[in-house]
Design a binder for these strands. Structure first.
Lengths: 116, 116
DNA sequence: CAGGATCCCCTGCGATACTG
DNA sequence: CAGTATCGCAGGGGATCCTG
């Protein structure tokens, strides 16, 4: 992978439409989620995109893939140590976002005062 | 803007190819950078993309735009308070990325031991 | 200097169908 | 259940030229 600075590098690794949420969801469920559970939580994701995102996260060493050779098949995804290191970052980002969302909601009302 | 969860919301606000670096660079230069300085630091960005990213960051309340009505024109960009709140997280992410980059570099060598 | 306007391309993402 | 395989598209991003 090529990148121009480490901030660029980081965003390329966890950017995209789903990777942040995938990491967050796996973390929030005892660090273990099956493929189908992830798919349900991400709601509208297609199997192609989910598989692609998971494969990239695995190749990047952020997510571990454990296959149970049974019928029916069972595959569990968990965060690696490196992946877990990202959790505090995502948590703080999430807190910031929650605050932002609240702020916008209240300013929808307060806006009228603002412009006199 | 629509989003399905706050993690999604956050990534939509600072995602994309340049926004993270823009915030980081502005912060790293006393919280004030002119348009041309930003453009030079981002190296290969086109004026269209830079202007677009800055306008979105401004609309999102993360960046402040100060125009000096002179000839030649001068425009300075700085982080708002809300924008500054993101700096610690980006720094955290950057530290993680720096460690990752180091790890990959050394494993290029160590890999041979690993596979026996 | 700090952009705006146009045209264009690539790829990230989606829809659908199929399989071990 | 946990994926592959194809096909297709919209829009994020790029190249180039122009301007107050």
């Amino acid at each position: 992978m090529d990148y121009v600075c480490s901030v660029d590098y980081a965003f390329k690794r966890i950017g995209g439409k789903y990777k942040g949420r995938i990491i967050w969801y796996i973390h929030n469920f005892d660090n273990t989620l099956r493929y189908g559970e992830l798919k349900r939580k991400l709601e509208n994701i297609t199997p192609k995109m989910l598989t692609q995102a998971l494969r990239e996260l695995e190749a990047d060493g952020l997510v571990h893939r454990k296959v149970y050779h049974e019928v029916p098949p069972k595959v569990e995804y968990s965060l690696t140590d490196t992946g877990q290191e990202l959790v505090p970052f995502i948590r703080h980002l999430k807190d910031w976002a929650d605050a932002q969302i609240e702020k916008v909601k209240s300013s929808d009302v307060a806006e009228y005062d603002g412009r006199q």
